[in-house]
Write a protein that binds this DNA or RNA. Sequence first.
DNA 1: GAGAGTTAATTTAGAACTAAACAAAGTCGG
DNA 2: CCGACTTTGTTTAGTTCTAAATTAACTCTC
Lengths: 402, 402
Amino acid sequence: MAIHTSNRTDVNRSAILARLGADGPASRAELARVLALSPALITQLVKELLADGLLVELEQAPSNGGRPARMLGLATSAGHAIGVKVVADHVAFVEVGVDGRVVRSASEPFDATASTFIAELIERIRDFIAAGDGTTVLGLGVGVPGSVDRLGNGVVDSAQLGWTGVELGDALRRATGLPVVVENNVNALAVAERLFGLGRSHDNFLVVTIGTGVGAGIVVDGNVLRGASGGAGEIGHTPVADDGPRCGCGNDGCLEAHIGEGALVRDARERGVIAPDGGIDDLLAAADAGEPGAIAIYRAAGGLLGRTLAGVVHAVDPAFVVVLGEGTAGWRHWSPGFEPAFRSHLLRHRRSLPVEIETWQDESWAQGAAALVLAMPFDAAGSAGDQGRLIRERLVGQAVRR
Amino acid sequence: MAIHTSNRTDVNRSAILARLGADGPASRAELARVLALSPALITQLVKELLADGLLVELEQAPSNGGRPARMLGLATSAGHAIGVKVVADHVAFVEVGVDGRVVRSASEPFDATASTFIAELIERIRDFIAAGDGTTVLGLGVGVPGSVDRLGNGVVDSAQLGWTGVELGDALRRATGLPVVVENNVNALAVAERLFGLGRSHDNFLVVTIGTGVGAGIVVDGNVLRGASGGAGEIGHTPVADDGPRCGCGNDGCLEAHIGEGALVRDARERGVIAPDGGIDDLLAAADAGEPGAIAIYRAAGGLLGRTLAGVVHAVDPAFVVVLGEGTAGWRHWSPGFEPAFRSHLLRHRRSLPVEIETWQDESWAQGAAALVLAMPFDAAGSAGDQGRLIRERLVGQAVRR
DNA sequence: GAGAGTTAATTTAGAACTAAACAAAGTCGG
DNA sequence: CCGACTTTGTTTAGTTCTAAATTAACTCTC
């Protein structure tokens, strides 16, 4: 009864599952082409996966000149992933299927600065899992606003949460017994975009978020760029002026200190565009009402974002840019500043680079975190140590083997 | 007598050769660890490579606790690569061994804007190859100042050379019958740095060149980042001001338009620091002589470079930065502006990021181009189509098989 | 200086994978 | 509706690779 799973085969089995999960049903021949494996091997592995109940054979596809393909799809009962979004004052949860669809979601208040925050978080997570329908949980993905050292151990540094060296991954793993992947929240969004969004058909793109902070997830050759220490994508701290407003990071003139939500609100208050206790909603309302001061603030922010993004685009050459985050609620006011600044600073042959604005719900962040779990078993690089293997084992362990 | 080389094995044989070429002699056990292959396979492949005369067994290494390792080295007669640097007014050539050492070099005048430039270039290359000692030429690497669409076909767009859509790779391949790899010159330098320089021990770093233009080669997870269309690393066109001097690319306020060699000379002339027909050498001499105007120009350029690089560092999170290029001749004058600007704009935990300035000879560019050829057979991604395989075949074809 | 411990390399049995031939199931054009 | 052509999927024989046991060659300790 020893299962004795060799490593190589599991990787390829996972690759099949990943492809079907990410791009929907496909035929054996298509899988062979896409995964660069021989048709013979696909036949063999699919046979096992079907026997294990992880795949199902769907209807025949219409023929295009030859024998029609028998499509293969994921058995949607194969398992669920839990995504957790952590911010300073609350946590959001989602449970998603292997196809990325949200099964249920929740949001709870949470104080990240409390001394007992880890115990608190564990409690909330346990409650959420307990409320599920008993479908196997493949793993736990956690998105945090900050930099994460190694995905596996999940050591978090976050100015926004006031955390330094918090070993969140290890703590959650011990408490839940589940595979845990911790990642910067923007990178998590980039993974989700890659698996389920516009990035499905592109290997190089940029995910930009605007809101409290400004960040980027950089996808290069199909993988999220993490950099030497997991801190890549911090475009919010790109210096845009030699002496600008002081940023939360301690430096002067960061992009985030100019166009982050806090900066916009501060400017609006100083200029009397909103009341001294007004917030971002008031600024947006003022701009919607045609107030010139509010419109000017948004336009300036859009211009600064456009100019900075042009530089990032030149550095990494993406096929397109996706903008999302809470800030996109007011994008109609950013746009008049953004478009001319962005386009005019791009090299001629890249002027027409597509920029997509995605509508935004708060649960998207958590969805991104869940996507980490679904992507991890198929990550050849194995950046998260054992976690990918563990998730694979839970997935494959679903069925009785041989 | 059919050789019948299967693909997979050749990749692993090449990987062994690559490692030995890049990092010097190693033991079988070391190779197994580094390449993540089983010791059994290494034993097998090394046996064949030794029989083929591509490897030699060196002296024993001193034991460190156990059986001492028998070191393996490349047979340096295995083949040479030719590197070509193309700029507007001349071409430089080098011939290098598989270990990266330069065997010989040359430099010839060349007019990139002439209508017959391709025929001219072919002629020069033929002459250089003919002057060699008959060692097998594995391939031809060409570095150009501009963006290259697909490495294999080598379609070049270069404002500096006045080329658009030039199919340089195909032309050279037809004319020489050799495998040809065309690449942006800064990316070529990054490859050289990865194979033979500081990048040997790091997977994420930044290569920055200053001189006529400003560029960056971004190495991510061991590979040069090329982006969606091969145009990554163009940090010279990062906008640093909303309205700055007009750049060669047609936009306003590019970094290059502020701190490129042309911009420095223009500023110096305008301020009367050098004569109206003076050049960059005069500016450097003035700064060396303590002329405050010259020193100020360098200092300002250093500051702008530092601020911009801080942004790039935040975006891609390298383990270190290498600065090279003609401009480094005057680095002692850049440094007082660069250091404070760079460090003060970095996030706190990255303040101590190492920045290495490399001494510079003109032939380094060509050496980088040659490194492309040596790196190509071992590039798993196969970004250059068939060229990698062709180079492998020439390398392995050196010896009589079985 | 005889074991105990370590590291290096090889052998062997078997698993993972591929190429190539083949079988199956359609379209298309007369 | 019959053969030519395409595309999909399977079988078979053989290659590539790994795991595990084994042999080899050293150091270290008592």
